[in-house]
């Protein structure tokens, strides 16, 4: 049974902000279906009592105080911007009348 088809890949693509071409979505749907089919074996593993391992080392999430520190500076931060104006990154129009929140 197919786990994931073209429509599902396009839905996920929108969540991930990826726009897929016609043939691309179908090929990716086939790949993802094969990979998820393989990963489905995990469903049969008895994980009762297994904690969730969030990282490789047994680390507590280390917290620290915020401390201001010098940084390369505004000019360098903006040097890589595709488009900038003064002290700001420029982007295309934000309000497009769709579901952007």
């Amino acid at each position: 049974m197919s786990r994931i088809g073209r429509a599902e890949v396009e839905r996920i693509g929108h969540l991930a902000r990826l726009r897929l071409e016609e043939g691309e979505a179908e090929a990716l749907a086939r790949d993802l279906d094969a990979i998820l089919g393989y990963a489905a074996e995990l469903g049969a593993v008895d994980t009762a009592g297994a904690s969730e391992a969030r990282s490789g080392a047994a680390l507590a999430t280390p917290l620290r105080e915020d401390r201001p520190a010098p940084w390369p500076g505004l000019e360098q931060a903006l040097a890589n911007a595709p488009d900038a104006d003064g002290t700001a990154f420029l982007v295309p129009q934000v309000l497009e009348g769709e579901e952007e929140g």
Partner: peptide
């Protein structure tokens, strides 16, 4: 495509630019 790297040319709005 906002702060660094490659930005697609000519997108009409922000979402299209991201995508």
């Amino acid at each position: 495509g906002v702060r660094y790297g490659r930005r697609a040319e000519g997108a009409a709005g922000l979402t299209e630019m991201y995508e």
